[in-house]
């Protein structure tokens, strides 16, 4: 069974997914960060594949992408770092990235490599549903790789149903109309959206992302979904001076305890 399904079978609330950019702050921090996140209590780990033009991301993640590329990170380097990750951690891992670097790597080769190293799912914000179902879905299924789609407050009910039907693992609920890290809170106005999604009884679990930065926003998100995703705030935390593992532990504990 896919590790993401195992996770949601065992844990239906307060699931914490933490995002970091591969190759940031240093090229070879990837495994250290994954191990420290698992140890500190993150339930799911989302690794960003850095890209030169991340249009859905705000300044914090853009900068981490730029630094990671300058450090020499690429999909090939990332896969080599993840080569024996399953000997080290059990936590489900998803890769998040823009579609161009993956298309250049080759979608079939990418799916095969994900299966080989033990990646459980991917989030590709600029891969449209139509392209996925028309061309790529069989490759994902062949390699047991889950494709996680996003929904936003503007997504129509019909499209949410379509996304739910074609998703596996979980649905990424973008909390508000924004790029990543643009807002540091989630507001009252979002309650209607959250309630609307809850009442739809989707087949997939939901995690809320964008605007989740600390214990308060994490708690609020967890009242409305199976858990939440933290990205920009974590990138800021590991940009701080001091010991990387201690910074990670401190941040995760401050969110979940």
């Amino acid at each position: 069974m896919n590790r993401i399904d195992q996770l949601f079978q065992a844990k239906k609330e307060r699931v914490l997914n933490v995002y970091f950019t591969a190759g940031y702050p240093q090229l070879h921090d990837t495994v250290t960060i994954i191990e420290a996140l698992e140890k500190s209590g993150a339930d799911l780990i989302e690794i960003g594949i850095p890209y030169s033009d991340p249009i859905a991301d705000g300044p914090t993640i853009q900068e981490s992408n730029g630094v990671a590329l300058a450090n020499g990170m690429s999909l090939k380097v990332l896969f080599s770092q993840l080569n024996d990750i399953r000997a080290k951690v059990k936590v489900p891992i998803v890769l998040m990235g823009y579609v161009n670097p993956i298309v250049q790597y080759g979608m079939e080769a990418f799916c095969a490599k994900c299966e080989e190293v033990g990646v459980d799912g991917v989030i590709l914000p600029d891969l449209p549903m139509f392209e996925y179902t028309s061309y790529y879905k069989p490759m994902f299924e062949k390699h047991g790789l889950y494709n996680v789609f996003l929904i936003t407050p503007q997504t129509s009910e019909a499209r949410i149903r379509e996304i739910d039907d074609n998703s596996n693992g979980f649905i990424y609920m973008v909390s508000s109309a924004s790029t990543t890290g643009a807002k540091t809170s989630i507001s009252i106005g979002q309650s209607d959206y959250f309630a609307r999604i809850k009442s739809m009884n989707l087949k997939n679990p939901t995690l809320i992302g964008f605007g989740i930065s600390n214990a308060e926003t994490f708690d609020k998100a967890c009242e409305n979904a199976n858990g939440a995703i933290i990205g920009s705030a974590f990138i800021k935390a590991i940009s701080e001076e001091g010991d990387l593992e201690k910074n990670i532990e401190g941040f995760v504990k401050s969110v979940i305890d």
């Binding site: 859905a56 600029d126 891969l127 449209p128 392209e131 929904i151 936003t152 503007q154 997504t155 924004s178």
Partner: peptide, 19 residues
């Protein structure tokens, strides 16, 4: 109708821009 001229075109956009 999908915005393709032969092999090129389409609408590769994040869900936030879809509506």
């Amino acid at each position: 109708e999908r915005g393709y001229y032969g092999n090129f075109g389409g609408a590769f956009i994040p869900e936030m821009l879809y509506p």
